[in-house]
Write a protein that binds this DNA or RNA. Structure first.
Lengths: 131, 131
DNA sequence: CTTGACCCTCCAGTGACTGGAAGCCCCATA
DNA sequence: TATGGGGCTTCCAGTCACTGGAGGGTCAAG
C-alpha cells in the first residue's frame, strides 16, 4: 500500500509516517520505483502508534509499548508501569494548568476590560508569586 | 547589576535572560568590559516576564503584555482580551488532559500488572478511537 | 503529450529554552 | 607575581515531534 492510503487508514499525515520511518518505528518495504510499500502489519503498527500518541505517550514511550506489543512473552507489569508513570505526569500537568486557570480567571474577572488604562491583570503580574 | 544577581532576583536562569535579550524582550546596557549592565527597570521587566510565563502565556503574549504594561494610555480591554484568550486555551488543554487521564486510569485499573503477557492496555490501544 | 495527483529526498523552522565549548575578566590567596 | 576559581562573553547544537517547502521523479487518465 502507498503512503497516502496508509495515511487515510491510520489517520496520520504522510509526513508523520515518513518521520516515524526515519526514527525507526516502522520499516516499510520499497517498490522498485522507490515508493514505500506498507504491509498490513505496518498499518496496524501505525494505528497503534496513533492511538498511543493520542493518549499523550511520548515517542519513546510508544517505542517501548510497541516493543512490548510485539513481544509475546512480555509481562503486563511492564506495560502497566509505563502507563502508570504517564498517568502521574498527566495528573501533574492537569494540576499545574488548574492552578493557572484559577489565577487567570480571577484576573479576568477582576478586570473591567474597558478603555481605561488601569488594569488589575497587569497590576497582579507585578505581585503574583513566580512559583 | 550583573546577570548572575539579576538571575537570582528575577528567579530566572541567566541563560534565559540572555535569550530574552536575544529576542528583544529586555535591552540591558553594557559595561566597558562587555558585561551586561541591568538597570532596576530591566529587573522589574524580567520579574514581570517570569510571572507571565509562570501563568503559561507564550513569549509573544508576554511581548504584547509588556508593551501594554509600559503604555500609560493602554485600554484594559486589550489586556483582558489576551488573558481571556489564554484562559480559553488553558481550559481546552485541561479538557484534553482530563480525557486522557480518564482513559488511561481505566486502562491502568484493568491491567493486572503481573508477569503474565495478557495486557488489556495493549489490547485497548488497538481499539481506542484516535479522536 | 500533457495534466494533475501522487511520491521521493533534503533542508529549515517551530517554542522556549538548555548544554557545552572556548575564551576573557576579576578577585583573593600563596 | 602566579594561580586558581568563579563569573562573564559568544556561538553552535540539541531538545520534542513534527511541519512546510523546494525541487524533482512517477503514474494513470484524457
Amino acid at each position: 500500500m502507498n503512503i497516502g492510503d496508509v495515511a487515510k487508514q491510520a489517520g496520520l499525515p504522510a509526513k508523520t509516517i515518513r518521520y516515524y520511518e526515519d526514527i525507526g518505528l516502522v520499516k516499510p518495504l520499497r517498490d522498485t520505483n522507490g515508493y514505500r510499500a506498507f504491509r498490513q502489519s505496518d498499518v496496524h503498527k501505525l494505528v497503534f502508534l496513533g492511538r498511543s500518541r493520542a493518549l499523550g505517550f511520548t515517542i519513546e514511550d510508544c517505542r517501548a509499548l510497541l516493543a512490548l506489543w510485539e513481544d509475546q512473552d512480555r509481562a503486563s507489569a511492564d506495560v502497566r508501569a509505563i502507563a502508570k508513570d504517564h498517568l502521574a505526569q498527566i495528573e501533574a500537568k492537569i494540576a499545574d494548568l488548574e492552578a493557572m486557570r484559577n489565577t487567570l480567571s480571577d484576573l479576568v474577572r477582576d478586570c473591567a476590560g474597558d478603555s481605561r488604562p488601569d488594569c488589575p491583570i497587569l497590576q497582579k503580574l507585578e505581585d503574583f508569586p513566580t512559583g
